[in-house]
Design a binder for these strands. Sequence first.
DNA 1: CGCTAACTATTAGCATGCTAACAGATAGGC
DNA 2: GCCTATCTGTTAGCATGCTAATAGTTAGCG
Lengths: 142, 142
Amino acid sequence: MGLPQESFGGILHETARLWRTELDRRLRPLGLSQAKWRALLHIACHKDCTQAELAARLGVEAPTVVGLLDRLAADGLVERRECPHDRRSKTVHLRQGGQALMKPITEMAENLSRELLANMSPEEVACSTQVLQRIRDRLLSL
Amino acid sequence: MGLPQESFGGILHETARLWRTELDRRLRPLGLSQAKWRALLHIACHKDCTQAELAARLGVEAPTVVGLLDRLAADGLVERRECPHDRRSKTVHLRQGGQALMKPITEMAENLSRELLANMSPEEVACSTQVLQRIRDRLLSL
DNA sequence: CGCTAACTATTAGCATGCTAACAGATAGGC
DNA sequence: GCCTATCTGTTAGCATGCTAATAGTTAGCG
């Protein structure tokens, strides 16, 4: 039957948590975290993005984005603006402080990824990526 | 450079979160979750386990186990007992209600795993498992 | 023996995620 | 045009994880 830590789900879960904790640890001197960094990157890449769009891109629920933006706005990194042609919506924009953080953040994330995948062959990484993507797609189609 | 959702770390993170959310959704009618189920399984398999041992086996920090056991004890599923030969430690034990849940819980977790891995070849699953294990080991050795 | 170091569980406080329930705004069907 | 559906953001409340700090206990070194 297999103990939980040896099952695929168990290893997936633990590896993801450790990865995130390590990245959070490295980003902490900048007052950041993986969740904040991912949000900033999407906001930078997709101008005039609404909160609902941002939630879909990040793959999380709307209330999660509300809290995340509250913290990022409190840090002075982003701001919400009312959408002119739809009074329900708000668009999210990077402020100067947020823009300045983009480069060091991205470098840290890529460095960690390189370190962790260093002794894997490209074939192994490609195979695993594809497996994870197919699991994700199946979960999204439930 | 690649957007975050397309990076290995991003896909790993999202897939793990979706897997856990789906399992939590299915376990909810039983008043359970993935974290509770994993703890119960380890407690059942390792008699007279201390909280520190349990934390190490689950791969989480000690305060996380404190909260988890508080909730499981409030549900009447487990109990703490003082360790006779070390007054710092407490051992954790399954109560009757917890024992009764083991079988349906394990079946649900295995069913989900089977569903999600159904259209993967054994070689692909083996390769991905190995890659995840190596990443995990590297993270643990930081 | 005694003192310091390490271990054990706990508390407090925070971040990130979820669901449920809501209020306001829009859009679509009649 | 209007009424209902749906969409958008928000709040409230919870679960799971973390770090830092604390109190009590044990163990190890001189």
